[in-house]
Nucleic acid binder design. Structure first.
Lengths: 255, 255
DNA sequence: CGACGAATTGAAACATCTCAAAACTCGTGG
DNA sequence: CCACGAGTTTTGAGATGTTTCAATTCGTCG
């Protein structure tokens, strides 16, 4: 794997650098300069609240393949992705892996109803994250219900996505899974203000398989099928051109 | 299907009757008498708060097979199950169905990050629910952050369950799926204070299949396999005796 | 340019599905 | 109390989509 940084990601990470430079002094809230704040759970916060957030946040940078935390570890922190792409997954004792989700700028991770993380997290591309001590963040949530409300909204959204994924895993064919996956990646890129059509697919075939409940080989064969049917085109740097979105949507819905 | 009411459920529903009789007058909060409150999102509420809840809640009773709402409908209400068993599911246009979850006393449903329900809900057994107008409940959440916090906790819990189900759907074999399912039903029954071992399985083979991403036939065959291996015994009234929990756990984890 | 991991392609194996029929359950009515 | 009937569950046999195992090609990076 070890995907290199896409042009977009470099831009994102550069954009965040002011926020990462937290001189101890009384400078303006670095969170105020956060270019992806509107996507995160910090979206509803005002000037003063952001200052409080700034004081407890720490900025993390990860390289492709770097682990963030492992399933079962003590869930001491919550994270918000500000740039790049992450994967979160669960393992069975014999090594079978299910990727629970891919995370991009704006997504958070580390919410655990237990004391321990319920999944492992690892960087796919060069990524940047904000790291919040759980206890301190909880104290903040107590003070700023708007933030808690936002978090509930994001959790609801994630829940809906998880349910959609259950439908995919339990009832869709390989072709339907791949079509759904590509469209979903496109939709999410769009939400982040990126280009939805030649969609960026930064993860490996193996990761895609472990996300869709397929093997690497089946993923590859299905891409080939879609390519031969002129529904997609594989471009350099892990980009996929969706040549016939309508047809892909029909396939994704099972028609 | 049309499962008849189990002795337990009758008890539950009877236990709730005081709460269902909402004379318009100034009587004591019917929610104060709720026998499953500790399981619901009303758990953290005090005397006064419960009174407010009582004023906006309505009690619903459903018979086996009764629909509660359909995917895509305007999400005007939230519900909390107080007795019985429900199923929530999503459909593909051609009729393929994925059951997203089975709900029992204490579980809530209807949380939508959109204006519309993301799934359909239907009663499996004779069931009772509390029905809350979304707008009014949201106003209450604003006033009682404790309730919102509890809801976030329950949503996190659901999210973790959904992720576990993704692992099951994407990576487990039929035998592992069935073993996981039975153990999970048992654990949940236990949490509600019911018997975990001869576990109650009120749903049809078809429902189980649509929950686990299998066909009815495969579910049936797998039950037979487990029965022949002396790991379970099928008892009357949809109960399953887990004869060797350890072995079932090993199977469920993929060992 | 050379090399190593990732992706693709091929052929055979297999778990689950599909189609079909028999057996069972349980409520109902004679 | 027993027999009937409709729906559900179980069992069987054959079909199939996906996996497994193996080999080749591609792409990227040193």
């Amino acid at each position: 794997m070890q995907q290199s940084l896409s042009p977009f990601d470099i831009g994102r990470i550069r954009g965040l650098e002011p926020a990462r430079e937290r001189a101890g002094g009384e400078q303006v809230s670095p969170c105020g300069a956060c270019s992806v704040r509107h996507l995160t759970f910090c979206a509803p916060l005002g000037e003063e609240e952001l200052n409080h957030v700034s004081r407890i946040v720490q900025n993390i940078e990860l390289h492709p393949g770097d682990p963030l935390f492992d399933e079962g570890e003590d869930a001491t922190h919550l994270y918000s992705v500000t740039a790049g792409a992450m994967k979160v997954y669960k393992l069975l004792p014999d090594g079978r892996r299910q990727i629970i989700g891919f995370l991009f700028a704006g997504d958070f991770l580390g919410l655990a109803d237990d004391e321990a993380y319920a999944y492992s997290a690892e960087a796919i591309t060069h990524s940047a994250l904000c790291r919040f001590p759980r206890r301190k963040l909880e104290a903040l949530l107590e003070r700023y219900p708007r933030m808690e409300r936002r978090l509930l909204g994001m959790a609801s959204h994630e829940l809906a996505a998880a349910q959609e994924q259950m439908l995919l895993l339990g009832r869709k064919t390989a072709k339907e899974k791949i079509a759904s996956f590509l469209l979903s990646l496109g939709r999410r890129a769009e939400q982040r203000g990126q280009t939805a059509n030649p969609v960026s697919v930064p993860m490996s075939r193996n990761d895609i398989g472990d996300f869709l409940g397929l093997t690497t080989e089946t993923v590859s064969r299905t891409f080939t099928q879609l390519r031969q049917a002129k529904l997609i085109a594989l471009m350099p740097a892990g980009r996929v051109d969706l040549l016939d979105v309508e047809a892909l949507q029909d396939i994704a819905e099972g028609n």
